[in-house]
């Protein structure tokens, strides 16, 4: 519980600070654009689907690469840490979803006030699942690299496949190649596939991380 509390308080706070800064920058850019062109899209939508998911992935990387060794160095087991980290992915994804939604509310109000045009964005559930899977995949791939060194590169295709899943029906992320109609045919059922992607990412992280060595860092 101590690990979970620590991860949640520090990284959610950090995520909120980063999100607030990026949101203000995003609004500033919109105002700059409005001086010479018509604003016709949601900058926050682009930020949340293109930049935010990479930030969330990085948080997953940081959790395993930086925090897990510290936990072991302070006498905690990998099992304890991975249980806490799994719960953390859900809380962090939820927090990022709330921040995303809060951003859309504020941006919507500003756009309405300025009479700017916006673009559609994904549902809160779609955002939550996207953040959930990207955070877990960041943990999974990092665990593989930290355990096997360059051999971890073999897990990249798997990680890539997993992170593609929740973004398929999300506006602004691009479509799935070759089978464009499948997600549409599945409708909201596609979200179940995203949940499976998260379960798979967490499962392999667990399998790899339980025997991960704590390597000496470069001084």
């Amino acid at each position: 519980m101590k690990i979970f509390r620590h991860l949640t308080t520090t990284l959610v706070t950090y995520g909120a600070i980063v999100a607030a800064c990026v949101f203000l920058m995003n609004l500033a850019v919109a105002f700059v654009i409005s001086t010479f062109a018509e604003v016709s899209f949601s900058g926050w939508m682009l930020v949340t689907v293109q930049i935010a998911r990479w930030f969330v992935l990085w948080v997953g990387v940081y959790t395993i690469h930086n925090v897990l060794p510290i936990a072991v160095a302070h006498g905690r087991t990998r099992r304890e840490f991975l249980v806490a980290a799994t719960g953390f992915t859900a809380v962090f994804a939820l927090a990022m979803t709330l921040l995303t939604w809060l951003g859309f509310l504020v941006e919507g109000a500003v756009y309405a006030l300025m009479d700017w045009k916006s673009t559609p964005h994904g549902s809160p559930l779609a955002y939550f699942l996207m953040f959930l899977v990207w955070c877990a995949v960041g943990m999974f791939v990092t665990a593989a690299f930290d355990r096997w060194g360059y051999g971890g590169v073999l897990t990249l295709p798997v990680g890539l496949a997993l992170v593609l899943v929740p973004g398929i029906t999300m506006p602004g992320t691009g479509d799935m190649p070759f089978v464009r109609d499948l997600p549409l045919a599945l409708g909201d059922g596609w979200h179940v596939v995203s949940v499976f992607a998260w379960v798979a990412a967490v499962g392999v992280t667990w399998a790899i991380g339980r025997a991960m060595p704590v390597r000496a860092k470069a001084v």
Binding site: P69, I70, V72, A73, H74, G75, R76, T77, R78, R79, E80, R210, V214, A216, K217, A218, V219
Partner: peptide, 19 residues
């Protein structure tokens, strides 16, 4: 991976793992 035993140990390498 034994929580009770791990609690009893502290190793500090010159690379400062706990930081």
């Amino acid at each position: 991976e034994n929580a009770d035993a791990m609690r009893q140990v502290c190793l500090v390498r010159h690379t400062a793992d706990a930081a």
